[in-house]
Nucleic acid binder design. Structure first.
Lengths: 356, 356
DNA sequence: CTGTTAGCGCGTTCAA
DNA sequence: TTGAACGCGCTAACAG
């Protein structure tokens, strides 16, 4: 079933059918209705490839993530895809990670598909990709990209608010020795989180001894290892801030093995707020980055690039904030707790999240 | 940069360029090398849409899942996509769930893109979708589909082995009162799991009182609710088998709140083996369905339909088995435990999984 | 083995 | 407002 048949059956030209399908306003309503009738009746599905070829626009956006199965990314994909449906764009998904060859294959795929834009959310290795696309004049969206031009849109993620809230939340609970378990220093975002942590500690006059700043790799194993190491420090920290949730969960698990009670003996804070964070025992206090806001920003940027007519580059925010979500893995520092009348009943975790 | 330019620069016809790109064997190696040189130098990326239009094949497979952010599906997507890369297919992803309109939009998108096949992994609402695609002669893969024809490939998931292992594992540990928390009866797969459970219990002469067969909805909340309800039964069950992992995790959490020790007071078994299952405290004993095997089966079926030449429909298995993975959420029944010399040390969970 | 040519199905001029 | 005709970039016959 092609456009020709519809035209013949509706007694109009293919141009009219095309206009009807594309909702061009200047089509005679009577003809339009007749055409739509036939389309409905015959079950006509316009061929996307022919459309793309004729119009020069594919109505496909690329989305590159490091791994679809790492928590956090599925949410982004979901939100991004949903926006795609709303605006009639398809999403070409690629998961690229570390492997330079796969990475280029993915980029090639996007370009051969003539995507109208690409969102690169790989958090760390986008540099070389951006170049490839720039050469082909494909609009790109990337997190925390250094420069921005007509073809490269970006937003900063503002780690400080969430981390400041974290540090001050812990300080208010009486914690002084606060450890930090970061990600690998190769990752720009991991570095930014760590710097923000150190800055926020200094702001309120807390010192951060280097011996309780650990470098992990954002896995649960790394969290467990770090917890083990930290537990044998002369002056054991009373709180551990982690640069992602998996690390924090690893810390919690190891603490359990070491018979440390959380939060009575040790407070733990994560980062990302993956869906599982609220179901860990105890529910994890963590810094939230809205996956939805990231997806929104990315999609809006690409849409703007693809259809500049719409609203002339307006309403593009340029930084995404972070927030602390207080759950049950943080509590008063042990010494302060001893002074308190009695400890809160175990297992009485509230269902709702508190934001400060 | 189009094929014409490459042809001109390499001093050959566009047909030769096309053949070179498509690795047709009969091209003079000298010419081929010359062409490849130019392609490389000019950075030529063949236009996928034009290719699809000319050849009548899109090299795109559709993949429909209920929700990308539910654990289990990301793994399937990952595996499926990886196979796509290997065989030079792109994946058009759609998450469809409950909403009839979105569902049809998704199907329309697939058809308009002229996908060479669709894998429908929605576990429950594929019926109407299958029809739409059959009409358009699009090959479809679906789990547990009733009939199969040339256009509809399918595999059964064999729930019984895993559930039989579960039941016998628990029986061997001395459990007699074994409860079951299933999913909604609307879901065919949930029903199949429940039936398998009841059959396997009867096999070994254990009775299943209806009052400890609960119906949930595959969420953590449902698990918690069921655990609460079961804990107040006159004769409390000593083990709970759940029809998915989230439910099991909900049970565990509620048990924690109720100060029930797992596995000393209560054994819990899940289903699916989502990645998080091994990181729950205690690590969850669960029935595993290999996400990879599902993805493999789906992809192989679609590939066979799209390129029948390859190996003539061979090596297509028609059932995917399930296995019990024993971790730390199951243990001896309480009465038997009392007889034992001493309980195993808390927190000494092994890192490796045991399969029976 | 190579080149010529006719579509693939639709968007988009340009006249009418 | 409508229609005829051309072109998008490539594949696939077929002829050489």
């Amino acid at each position: 079933m092609k456009i020709q048949e519809i035209a013949r059956l509706a007694n109009v030209s293919i141009a009219t059918v095309s206009r009807t399908v594309n909702r061009v306003a200047t089509v005679d309503p009577v003809l339009a209705r007749r055409v739509r009738r036939v389309i409905e009746k015959e079950g006509y599905y316009p061929n996307t490839h022919a459309r793309a070829l004729g119009s020069g626009r594919s109505r496909v956006f690329g989305l590159m993530v490091p791994e679809v199965s790492t928590p956090f990314f599925p949410e982004v994909i979901q939100a991004f895809t949903r926006l795609g449906v709303q605006h009639n764009y398809e999403i070409l998904l690629s998961s690229v990670f570390r492997d330079r060859r796969l990475l280029e294959t993915a980029a090639r795929q996007m370009i051969e598909r003539r995507v109208d834009g690409v969102a690169i959310l790989t958090f760390g290795e986008e540099e070389s990709l951006i170049d490839i696309f720039r050469r082909r004049r494909v609009p790109v969206f990337a997190i925390d990209a250094d420069c921005a031009g007509r073809l490269l849109k970006s937003v900063r993620i503002d780690y400080e608010p969430g981390i400041r809230q974290t540090v001050q939340h812990l300080a208010a609970l009486g914690h002084k020795r606060i450890a930090y378990v970061g990600g690998t220093a190769r990752l720009k975002t991991a570095l930014m989180r760590k710097n923000a942590f150190q800055a926020c500690m200094q702001e309120i006059g807390l010192t951060v001894s280097p011996e309780i700043i650990m470098e992990g790799d954002h896995t649960m194993e790394a969290g467990a290892d770090a917890a083990m190491a930290l537990s044998s420090r002369r002056e054991r920290p009373t709180a551990i801030v982690c640069s992602n949730d998996l690390t924090a969960i690893g810390v919690i698990r190891k603490a359990f093995d070491l018979s440390l009670d959380i939060p009575e003996d040790l407070s733990v804070v994560g980062f990302d707020d993956i869906p599982f964070a609220q179901h860990v025992i105890p529910p994890l206090t963590t810094v939230q980055i809205s996956q939805k806001e990231i997806a929104d920003a990315a999609f809006a940027a690409l849409l703007n690039a693809a259809e500049p007519a719409l609203d002339g580059d307006a309403r593009s925010l340029n930084s995404i904030p972070t927030y602390l979500v207080v759950r049950a893995s943080t509590g008063m520092a042990p010494d302060r707790l001893r002074d308190a009348r009695r400890s809160p009943p175990r297992g009485a975790y509230g269902q709702t999240n508190r934001y400060i």
